[in-house]
Design a protein around this nucleic acid. Structure first.
Lengths: 245, 245
DNA sequence: CGCCAACTTGATGGCTGTCAAGTCAGGTGG
DNA sequence: CCACCTGACTTGACAGCCATCAAGTTGGCG
């Protein structure tokens, strides 16, 4: 809505990058005022995506990447036979769409899990500004690299962890990301279903449900539907490090 | 060795990018002669890595990325308890080290599986040249993006495929990459052990071995130690698409 | 109030891991 | 040249974790 109110375009309403409180998540630090002004040119369009809607789908032409301003997304890949692999969950300040650069088409689906708003960053513009602003270029490279490292972490989840280890790692990861955004590290609402968690972790929804119940029995967390409270962070971490040999 | 023979530095001996037969794999196409000359400045150092040696290790400071000129590598992450997750196998023309950009440290190990040679690309230099040569910048972004897409493919392997599907996908992927380098699509030597294949695919080495045997019984391939011959490509592909519901 | 999707919980089964024994190939030293 | 050794691999028997199938519960929404 805000983006439409051109007549009232004072900086606060335009939600310019230079005013955005997620700036340190999306953008490089230490930019000059002039460079910040350039970014406000680069990112001048926003899109609202309602819960359940797609931001993009596999095979859509790739034109832009997206910074999440508010809301929560999942990305997934569907096999012909209907099986789904969730490749990630993304929250405010994170970047969507990097998968499309290589083939000039998106290679997965991005679906809003709650009503969300994204900043549209046209990719050719980004490359142009990157050539002028070294800090922006370097920051973008870091964002892509971190995505690769994150994916390696998921491979470890899927490749060598057992069901409860995977879920513990998942909860700790969410906790850490909520913390970085100023939310409680120990209490939050899941935006995704058990089925989606299972798909991400390579498990069936029943296994996810059982692991939640088990954690609750052991006093590690409380679960009420999608509301999670972590009671024993250290206990969850211990699950990850301790292995019967 | 070649890089040391400065007195004899004719282009052929320097193995300059502009002369490299892997150029179309590593580099953007359509560069001008002048731009190609700049690349020869950017990539002026090569390193030989003997079988079993590390190109880099997790936690090493990140300074460069590497293009494989000859040879074969694996990348892996080790857990404290000794468990290993192989995150990828890389062959000539592919790029190593992208994981280190985000944190300025490498986050995995890169190990040569046969005697190999890599071109060293100092990363700050790459960023500098990228700002001048738009095609280089864009190509680099594509390389990173494709790595992300590749990782998503591995997640699908690990998340929703059964043992024989994983191995079939693995063989078909190798076949396709050998083909792109001018080797036989149907006959090749594996450079990695059953244990490393298993780690990559989230399986134990015995399961990998049994799946190889099963493929052989079914007439899909022949296996003699590390020598693989694919007899029925379509049959392997069918394994991937057909699922009991 | 009733419907439906999401979730929980129980019973059973199968895929793959684990443990174990044996084979094979390559390298070393006598 | 051959015996030996070692790491890689194969194969078999068994077990355990998680998937599957099934029934029931909960909460949200029209």
């Amino acid at each position: 809505m805000h983006a439409r109110l051109n007549a009232l375009s004072v900086p606060a309403l335009r939600e310019a990058c230079s005013q955005c409180n997620l700036r340190e998540l999306c953008l490089p630090v230490g930019l000059s005022d002039r460079e910040l002004g350039q970014l406000d040119e680069l990112v001048n369009l926003r899109r609202r995506i309602l819960r359940g809607q797609h931001l993009y789908r596999g095979n859509d032409p790739f034109e832009a990447i997206y910074a999440i301003k508010t809301g929560f997304f999942k990305t997934d890949v569907l096999l012909e036979d209907g099986r789904e692999q969730v490749t990630g969950f993304q929250m405010a300040g994170e970047i969507l769409g990097l998968d499309g650069i290589g083939s000039e088409k998106h290679t997965c689906n991005a679906v809003a899990l709650e009503d969300s708003e994204v900043c549209v960053i046209p990719f050719t513009d980004l490359e142009n500004y990157s050539r002028e602003i070294g800090a922006l270029q370097h920051h973008f490279h870091k964002v892509m690299s971190r995505e690769i490292v994150r994916d390696h972490g998921v491979m470890m989840l899927l490749g060598i962890m057992r069901a409860e280890e995977r879920l513990a790692a998942f909860l700790l990861n969410l906790s850490q990301r909520f913390t970085a955004r100023g939310y409680s590290p120990t209490e939050f609402n899941l935006r995704m279903t058990r089925n989606e968690i299972g798909s991400y972790l390579g498990l069936k929804l029943e296994t996810v449900s059982r692991a939640f119940s088990r954690f609750q029995e052991e006093g590690l967390i409380t679960v009420h539907q999608k509301h999670i409270q972590i009671l024993d962070v250290a206990g969850l971490k211990k699950l990850l490090s301790e292995r019967r040999a």
